[in-house]
Design a protein around this nucleic acid. Structure first.
Length: 319
DNA sequence: CTAGCATGATCAC
DNA sequence: TGATCCTGCTAGC
């Protein structure tokens, strides 16, 4: 998926293309017809993300909520004023496909005929977006949005999103350090309340929102944490280190449009950074660890594939 | 062509 | 824990 970094990029792009504009919202596929009609013709005031969910506020105080799930993706296009990724969301092979936009059309005749199952289509004067395959795509009022937001744990990208908003609206909102700190406290509190393994808990969106299967595996490796360790047994120091590291790698993900977690000194010379040198453990089962003589392991845990290095990520001995 | 798979999450048992 | 939903890419006939 679409882990959290993709959703934050998506929110930025939707803001870029549609922010403040009157938009037509339709459902070529038909499944979103009734809800689309509730926001069709309104202004899209603002888009934002929390965790893996996207929210767009419209001028009639209704909100679009989208969860891409495993398969969902947006594709974009527009006239010469449009530039940006042509696709954000589920890639169908390793890596995030965020192709550069197509701004070279001389004559813009509006969006193309819908191809495939387009759940939702948003069109403004200069651009369009098609949504396919989402797990959730619905229109909500403010109180319903609050319920969704309230269920989500702290988002490591909240401070980055806040800083971005501040720059955009030319307001000084500080460095975002306070938001990072508040996130850490909440994360720590949430971890301390669960006995489940950290490898499972990191995927729990109520505990921390936006981390998916890749960031889960990579963050545990980078911080030398065994996925089996019960979440409430991590020391405060370790939780803080883990949180700050996740903030850092996910901010890189927003910047790069793909997940790259390796440090330069751990990459294999002669191979391209992407995708060969992007990860420490994800999809590297059976291959040599980048940092020790061991081999990367793979196990199916809670129906998801978990990758880790048993040597670098030893479980502390029970006493 | 089809089956299998994917960065997700929910629901039933 | 397993079945289910949603889409589209790819490997393998």
């Amino acid at each position: 998926m679409p882990e959290g970094h993709s959703l934050h990029r998506l929110a930025r792009q939707i803001d870029d293309v549609f922010g403040g504009q009157t938009v037509q919202v339709t459902s070529p596929q038909g499944r979103f017809n009734a809800d689309a009609a509730r926001i069709d013709g309104q202004q899209l005031e603002q888009a934002f993300a929390k965790g893996k969910q996207l929210f767009c506020r419209f001028s009639n105080d209704l909100y679009l909520r989208v969860h891409l799930g495993l398969y969902g993706a947006f594709s974009f296009g527009g006239d010469q004023h449009f530039s940006g990724a042509s696709s954000i969301g589920a890639p169908r092979k390793i890596g995030e496909r965020e192709v550069a936009g197509e701004a070279e059309h001389e004559v813009y005749a509006g969006p193309p005929d819908p191809v495939g199952a387009v759940r939702a289509r948003i069109v403004s004067e200069h651009g369009w977006a098609d949504l396919r395959g989402p797990t959730a795509c619905e229109v909500l009022d403010y109180s319903q949005v609050q319920i969704h937001l309230g269920k989500l744990g702290p988002d490591p990208l909240a401070s980055a999103a806040q800083a971005f908003e501040a720059i955009k609206s030319n307001v000084d909102s500080g460095s975002g350090a306070a938001t990072v700190e508040a996130g850490y406290k909440e994360f720590h509190k949430n971890l301390s309340r669960t006995k489940a393994a950290i490898g499972i808990t990191l995927m729990n969106q109520n505990v921390i929102s936006g981390v998916g299967n890749i960031y889960r595996a990579e963050a545990l490796f980078r911080n030398k944490i065994s996925p089996e360790l019960p979440a409430n047994q991590l020391s405060a120091r370790k939780v803080r280190q883990l949180w700050l590291d996740i903030v850092s790698v996910m901010e890189d993900g927003v910047r790069d449009g793909k997940i790259i977690t390796t440090r330069p000194e751990d990459r294999e010379p002669g191979l391209p950074l992407w995708p060969d040198n992007a990860y420490y453990v994800y999809q590297r089962q059976g291959m040599g660890c980048r940092r020790c003589a061991g081999k990367i392991s793979l196990a199916e845990v809670a129906a998801r594939k978990l990758y880790w290095c048993p040597r670098c990520q030893k479980r502390p001995r029970a006493k």
